[in-house]
């Protein structure tokens, strides 16, 4: 919900947002090696390389000085747009700023990620498939009762039954409730702005899509107890009748 209801039309508003972002974890600092591997990737899934913004992570590199400018050029040549650098030494940070890139501090030490990274580079094919395959959702049959939480960490959540007051249903994708929605429903919990909420009878305590929310008292009373769909439009939840 934006708060700029002032008389003066403001030029912008600042908002916190969680955007899905591709991180390019570099395990080599050699621009030529990166170029060769990128060329292979582009031929595998050209759809991915459409000026896709990426964050260059150099956490796993041990080199104090990087040919950052050349690496960026290689990326751009393959339609990847480096927007920021994560990790690295102070000179790396300075050269990132000099190139007009942002800089993020390194992530907390995560041994799992370190183990997974070499595996992923060794077998690039399944990884590429995973990003294009539809995520598996979850179907829940029965009443979701007060105090219960049903989550679909990937894909859509389908509830065949009622979601009662005090219950919470969450999904990375859309939330579908074939019954009355009386509790809290949160879709797009990882930031998917295409996600929606659909229910047979709207009486939700809270509706949220990709971090934007509406409470029960913000909902037009004419839409209550109606079958509706909820979509995100210009950072506002748009509720429309399905009846």
């Amino acid at each position: 919900m934006s708060l700029n209801m002032d008389r003066v039309a403001s030029a912008f508003t600042f908002k916190g947002g969680m955007l899905p972002m591709t991180v390019m974890e570099l395990t080599s600092a050699d621009p030529e090696q990166i170029r060769a591997q990128l060329a292979g990737k582009v031929s595998q899934s050209p759809a991915f390389f459409q000026h896709t913004p990426v964050v260059l992570s150099v956490e796993q590199l041990d080199e104090p000085h990087l040919a950052l400018e050349r690496i960026c050029a290689v990326c751009r040549a393959h339609k990847l747009l480096p927007v920021a650098v994560r990790g690295g030494t102070d000179p790396v940070k300075q050269s990132a700023w000099a190139l007009g890139l942002g800089w993020f501090p390194p992530q907390e030490a995560r041994p799992r990620a370190v183990e997974e990274a070499p595996l992923a580079t060794a077998e690039p094919q399944p990884e590429a498939e995973a990003s294009s395959a539809p995520a598996v959702g979850r179907i829940y049959r029965g009443t979701v009762r007060s105090g219960q939480q049903v989550t679909a960490p990937e894909g859509d959540l389908v509830v065949v039954g009622a979601v009662n007051p005090g219950a919470e249903v969450l999904a990375a994708g859309s939330v579908h409730v074939y019954g009355p929605l009386r509790g809290r429903a949160l879709g797009g919990i990882h930031g998917d702005r295409q996600a929606g909420i659909f229910c047979k009878e709207l009486h939700a305590e809270l509706l949220s899509l990709a971090g934007n929310y509406k409470r029960l008292e913000d909902i037009d009373p004419r839409l209550l107890n109606q079958p509706v769909q909820v979509q995100l439009r210009d950072d506002q939840l748009n509720i429309s009748s399905l009846g």
Binding site: T143, R145, S146, G147, Q148, N164, P165, G166, A167
Partner: peptide, 12 residues
């Protein structure tokens, strides 16, 4: 009613 709903969840 809400507390009963909670209990029904625990029963299940």
């Amino acid at each position: 009613v809400r507390d009963s709903d909670r209990i029904l969840g625990l029963l299940a």
